[in-house]
Design a protein around this nucleic acid. Structure first.
Lengths: 163, 163
DNA sequence: CCGCCTATTGTTACGTTATAACATGCTCCG
DNA sequence: CGGAGCATGTTATAACGTAACAATAGGCGG
């Protein structure tokens, strides 16, 4: 296993497990930090985990309607704000979409791989990239607060399919 | 001078000069590669260079209206598509906005610093970050095509102002 | 238990960003 | 000339996101 291991999405994995453990991590963190994982917040997080891909806010709204419990845009955006601020989900700027965090609980600066063919979104653990950005910022006396790193290209499968 | 030198925006610079040279570089590149820097495309590039900051498409439209030559959204988005595809401008995903490229002509994978206080957008030359992303992608057998790197935080000035 | 405070959610309406689809014009070249 | 291909104009609408205010719910001191 390397520092980039487990880029959620490149390999098969126990889906039910990752879903359960992510929810559990969210509950634990909320309990520990006095945050409330309310019904709507939990619902949105479950949807993100269920589909296990990047979803737009309106895609979430569609899913909520299909579940028989429709909601309005502000409801979803508020839930997403909560999830993102607390590290349970991330926004993919390039796609205007959201994914459940693949490493909840760990404090991390996420970096993503986006497949332009199949739409896969994989979250990397990449110490190296975070370090490089931090170093560049420091050299310019820039106080880094957040970083967006999204690499686009072809995932191994799609790359193969084109050969 | 380091590899991160000249992050356009941190230092004073000859504005008229950078504007002229960017336009010249665009013309040269177009001539060399058989692209046409048409009136609308040139207009949008000039506006980006004139304001020398990140501008939204509708901000550009406002400017065009004020110039007495109004245009419609598709016109601007098409010009921006051209400029971005050919490396004369970049999209800042985090801001849904566009900036003129600070290093036109050079083939590069841009990385940006965004000041969350004053709105400054600086384009870094950062070999290091590009390398780190490339390495991470390679390790996962991911065919990197494009990267989005946007570091948010406080620029030196704003950081100082808070001290 | 009650009433109050605060956080969360509901609801309506709207602002901002981006694109589809089709018509028109422009230019280069045979 | 004429048509092919690219660029632009034009209209309409899709997709993404938020402001503002009302209603509700859940915890806590009295």
């Amino acid at each position: 296993m390397t520092e980039h291991s487990d880029p959620l999405g490149f390999t098969h994995h126990d889906h039910a497990h990752c879903r359960e453990s992510a929810l559990q991590a969210a509950e634990d963190t909320c309990a520990r930090e006095g945050l409330s994982l309310t019904k709507q917040r939990r619902r949105v997080l479950e949807l993100l985990l269920r589909k296990h891909k990047a979803m737009g806010a309106y895609e979430l709204l569609d899913a909520m309607r299909e579940d028989g419990q429709p909601a309005q845009p502000p409801t979803v955006y508020r839930a997403l704000d909560f999830l993102v601020s607390n590290g349970f989900a991330h926004k993919i700027e390039r796609l205007n979409a959201f994914v459940a965090c693949a490493h909840p609980g760990e404090r991390h600066k996420p970096a993503f791989l986006l497949c332009s063919d199949c739409g896969l979104v994989a979250e990397m653990r990449s110490q190296g990239i975070g370090e490089a950005v931090r170093a560049a910022a420091e050299e310019l006396d820039f106080a880094l607060e957040r970083m967006v790193v999204e690499a686009e290209g072809l995932c191994p499968q799609c790359r193969g399919a084109r050969a």
